[in-house]
Simulated scan of single mutants.
Amino acid sequence: MITIGSVVKARYKTGSYIGKVKEERGKFFLVEILAVLKHPQQGDLHNPKQTEDVFFHERRALAHHEKANIQKTAVSLYEEDVPDYSDSLQTALEQLQQTLHNEPASPYQQLALANLASLKKDYFG
């Protein structure tokens, strides 16, 4: 059972995070982000992998200690050790880059990889 103070895995948009439940808000939990499991996909959430006639968003991972309202249905208990935020962010970013490198070349792949390269500079200097 998830209660205030529980460490959880939380899916938010196209990312996945480890966090701590701070409040219960009806159908949502307010979750403080502690680590990144999966970096968000780049581009338009409503038109995945599309580049034409859409606004191609740069999607950042939620920041360390950022709080997000996350639907209860997207939250589950997390019972493993919580990794360091910066290390987890770097691992998640590199996993997404590797996944994109393994896909056939496409305009989406090129734009997404460019966004991730820019984010990597921004995140880590």
Rank of each mutant, 00 (worst) to 15 (best):
M1S: 04
S6V: 09
V8F: 00
V8R: 01
A10K: 05
R11E: 13
Y12K: 01
Y12E: 02
Y12H: 10
T14A: 10
K20E: 15
K20I: 14
E23T: 09
E24H: 00
G26F: 01
F28E: 08
F28I: 07
I33K: 05
A35D: 08
H39E: 03
P40N: 03
Q42C: 11
G43T: 15
D44A: 05
L45W: 11
L45M: 14
L45V: 11
H46F: 12
K49M: 15
Q50M: 13
Q50P: 05
Q50F: 13
Q50I: 10
Q50N: 10
Q50R: 15
T51Q: 10
T51A: 06
E52K: 13
E52I: 15
E52A: 12
H57P: 00
R59D: 02
R60E: 11
R60Y: 12
R60L: 11
A61R: 00
A61N: 06
H65R: 14
K67T: 14
N69I: 05
N69E: 10
I70N: 05
Q71D: 06
K72W: 01
K72Y: 00
T73F: 09
V75G: 05
Y78K: 00
E79A: 04
E79M: 04
E80K: 12
V82M: 06
D84H: 06
D87Q: 15
D87N: 13
S88H: 05
L89K: 12
Q90E: 09
T91C: 04
L93A: 07
Q95H: 15
Q97L: 05
Q98Y: 14
Q98S: 12
L100A: 09
H101P: 00
N102P: 02
N102D: 14
E103D: 10
A105G: 08
A105R: 14
A105C: 10
S106V: 13
S106Y: 09
P107Y: 07
Q110Y: 10
Q110S: 14
L111Q: 15
L113I: 03
N115F: 10
L119A: 03
K120G: 05
K120A: 05
K121E: 15
D122S: 10
F124S: 08
G125L: 01
G125A: 04
G125M: 08
G125D: 07
